[in-house]
Design a protein around this nucleic acid. Sequence first.
DNA 1: GCCTAGGTCCCGTGA
DNA 2: TCACGGGGCCTAGGC
Lengths: 281, 281
Amino acid sequence: MWPERCRAILVSKPSVMVIYMADLLVWEKPDLNTLPGVIKKAIVEGRAVIIIGECSIEYEGRSASRLGNGERILIIKQDGSVLVHRPHGYSPVNWQPETSVIETWTDDEGRLYILAVREGPREVLSIVFSRVDLAVSMKLSDKAEFIMYLSEAEIKRILMDNPELVEPNLRILEDEKKLGSGQADIYGVDGNGRPVIVELKRIPASREAVFQLYGYVKSYEAKYGRRPRGILVAPSFSPSAIEALQRLQLEYKLIDLRELYRLALKKGYRKSILDYGRKQV
Amino acid sequence: MWPERCRAILVSKPSVMVIYMADLLVWEKPDLNTLPGVIKKAIVEGRAVIIIGECSIEYEGRSASRLGNGERILIIKQDGSVLVHRPHGYSPVNWQPETSVIETWTDDEGRLYILAVREGPREVLSIVFSRVDLAVSMKLSDKAEFIMYLSEAEIKRILMDNPELVEPNLRILEDEKKLGSGQADIYGVDGNGRPVIVELKRIPASREAVFQLYGYVKSYEAKYGRRPRGILVAPSFSPSAIEALQRLQLEYKLIDLRELYRLALKKGYRKSILDYGRKQV
DNA sequence: GCCTAGGTCCCGTGA
DNA sequence: TCACGGGGCCTAGGC
């Protein structure tokens, strides 16, 4: 194997290959004809590839798009995900999610073609590089667990453990109760024995959330012959949400996430929440 | 300025800086202490930065997350967008959309800190590199226009020019008719003079789309005192969508996008569609 | 700033 | 495979 951090001239100048770790290779100003081999080898070996250079792009699939020449960053990940980034913005201008099949070759004029193909539905992403300034191939090792706090699931857990935060005397009966083709976040009964369906949002609730709740209420009614109360629980509500709630005779309840967490902590709520609380201090 | 493609040892080995174009700089195994300067300079000069190495990440904002050590790809774009990619998948594990404020420094132990802060709501992304294998700084030039075909807007244009594709004798009166707080895709009258509201989807229609249409129908009714017909136009419909359509007394119409384009082409539809047709040949 | 709606949304989950 | 719903969704357009 190559020694660590060694440098080696691979092809003719100015194409230079640099190896300084067993798992990171760098080509500066590579001859484009060498890149199909580099990319294929990388894919076979489960390595990711980054290519920086000038390319044009076409996409056809669920939609279709064209993009003329420009300097961009291409990432081909170990699972075949493909991303092409322009100089600005969060979103890739073109992409292919994982499970793509990658094909690559060069034409007579020395341009580098990279095709990422996906099936079901068939989608083809075609990238043509006319110039490559830098190519990197690497095997990334990343086993860390990603922990997310404050997700809707976590908030729901708190509310289920503390139903009085939604309403006094509310008794939770079911989590993710299936109703029709979807499922209601929380299902229970109020102090008067009337069924209650709760739809929870961790972000401002829009009209869509109201309709979602309404769908569950209607499904319940159709199934059990009894109209349940429907309560939308969210940190805020858009005007159209309020309007729809009233029109559809549904209720809503404001929650303050911050307060929710304080209360959860005071009650000795354990696990991930605690970590979050510690961070807050 | 540096000559093109020259190489220059910048700090002590094994930290090597390579310059081969005025607008692409590469550091291999850089001393982490040099990177805050590199990053700051890049930001000031409107350059993008890619860093490959081992890092841990924390995020707090609309949600909160933690991720332990692992090898990842960090991209800081010219507009301050930040992306951190793990070895797999389309989505960055952590990110910050544009307009972030970037802070960077190293601590006593030589670890590299990169903080991306956003306001409204306040969100903080903290990335700590314990090892960097490669850093790249570049100024990407990309002026090309991105052309998208088959968008909902484009399909709508075709339907508005060919309303008989939705229904014979349909007469279009308004595009994006404002109703309540939203707007209906298409508004017109049928052969019997009854108002028609059309909701268009270019992807399989779900229950959500039905509720969207229902909202427009109800808004119209509230405003004009007359219940309009509501037609959901889409390439397919989910079972729950069909159920909701029937329950809410709304109609639906299947469209075949491919056929739509053929027809549009035959009728001499110009502009972007034509290009798309040419590609299809 | 908020609200609305599209997106090649992606992604996990469950049937 | 499809359907359903969450997401730090992002992004564009209006107001």
